[in-house]
Design a protein around this nucleic acid. Sequence first.
DNA 1: TTCGTAGTGTGAAAACGTTAACAGTGTTAT
DNA 2: ATAACACTGTTAACGTTTTCACACTACGAA
Lengths: 212, 212
Amino acid sequence: MKQVSEKVVSRLIIYRKYLKELLADGQKSIFSHKISAYTGASAAQVRRDLMNVGYNGTPVKGYNIKDLMTSISEFLEKENTIEVAIVGFGNLGKSIVDYCNGRNSRLSISAAFDTDPNKINRVIHGCHCYANTEMETIIKENKVEVAILAVPREDAQKVADKLVACGIKGILNYSPTRLQVPANIYVENRDMLMALEKVAYFANNVHGGKNK
Amino acid sequence: MKQVSEKVVSRLIIYRKYLKELLADGQKSIFSHKISAYTGASAAQVRRDLMNVGYNGTPVKGYNIKDLMTSISEFLEKENTIEVAIVGFGNLGKSIVDYCNGRNSRLSISAAFDTDPNKINRVIHGCHCYANTEMETIIKENKVEVAILAVPREDAQKVADKLVACGIKGILNYSPTRLQVPANIYVENRDMLMALEKVAYFANNVHGGKNK
DNA sequence: TTCGTAGTGTGAAAACGTTAACAGTGTTAT
DNA sequence: ATAACACTGTTAACGTTTTCACACTACGAA
C-alpha cells in the first residue's frame, strides 16, 4: 500500500471534517481552493493530497462532497471498526470520551480503565470502566488496537508497557511523559503544557501566518 | 531576531523538559546523543537546534544542564511572565489548568471564563473564574496575551472573535472547530478526535518508527 | 458546433528540513 | 608537554514537502 506521511494524513483528516460540515449544510460539491481557504493548506496541496486517496474530481464541478468523504474514510480506516480503550478516567479522560464517542462511526472507545473503586464497573458516556487489573483480558477479548493514555505522569510508562504487552499498536498520549516504546508502536504525544509553551512562543514571535 | 520554525521550537520544548528531569535527578551535564536517545531527534539535529539558542557546550563534557536550560528558557520566553486565560471551565478546562499551572514559572493561567453561574467567582486550581461578560476588562487589565479555548463547538468561533478583539495574540484551541482568525494570530489546534483518528491510521499502517 | 471559462492532475522547480562528515577543541592519561 | 580521545559546531550533501505552472477537460454560452 502507498506510504503516506504524517502531514498528509493530518490534512486528510482536516479535509474530511470540513466536508462533513459542508454535507450537513446541504452542499453537493466543492473546489480545492475552497477547501484551501478553510483549512489553510494551499489549493495545489489539497489536490496533491487527494491524489493519495484515489478519488478524482471533475474540472468545472470540483469534487462531489459525499463521494470524496467516502474515499477519504476508506483510505483512513480500512478496518470495519477500530476499538479504542482509554486508561485514566478522570476529568480529562471523561471529556475525551464524551467528545469523541459517536463522532466517527469506525472508531469506538468502548472500554476505560481506572484504579478508583468509585469508577470501576460504572458506565460513563457509554463507556464501561474496568479495573486496571482487567486490562489484559478486556483488550485481548475486544481486539483493542489503540489506547488513549490520560493518567498521571508517574504511572504513564508502566501503563504503556502493559498496553504494549497486551498488543496495542498505537497510543495517544496525554500524559506529560515521553514514552519509551518499541519502534513499531505509534505514539502521538499531546502534552498540554508543551502545547501552551509553543503558542506562547509564537504569540510573541510572529510567525509566517500559515497554519500547519 | 532569528526566525525559528515550529519544528525547532517544539523540539526545544521537548529538550527543556528532559533537562528538567535530569536536573531533578541531580545530573550536571549531558551529551547531544543522550538527548537524542530520549527525544527521538538525531544527535546532529539536537546540536543544530541548540545553535539557535546561542548556548555553547564544551567538547568532552557536553552541555551543562542548568545553563542550557536557562538559555532555552530565555530563548522561548523573553517576557517576564506571559499571562494566559482559559475560556470554558468544564472538565477539560479544569484538567488543563490543574496540570499546567505551576509547572512553567513564566506562564500563568490566571483567569478563567465561563457562563455557568455555579463556577463564576470561584477559584479553582488557583485560577479565578469570571463571567464571559468580563472578558474584555480582565484581559486588558491583566495584559493577557494567550488564550486556551475549551468551549463547545458552537461557541468557539464567537469566543475566538471576541478574544482577538481583546488583543489576544495566540490561541490554543481544544474546540473541535478550525477558527477563522487574522493572519497575525497564532492558532494551535488540538482536536482530540482528529488526534485519535491519526493514531488509528498509523496503528494500522506501520510508520517509519521515527518519533516526530 | 465552437469557444471561452474555470476547474483538475501532475511533472518540474523551489523551499525547507535532516543527516553526514569532519575540522576544531577542551580534557585526560601518560 | 604531548598525544589520544570524545565530544561540539558547522558546512555541505541529501531527502522530503510545498509550490509553481501548465496541459488537459467538462461544461455553458452564443
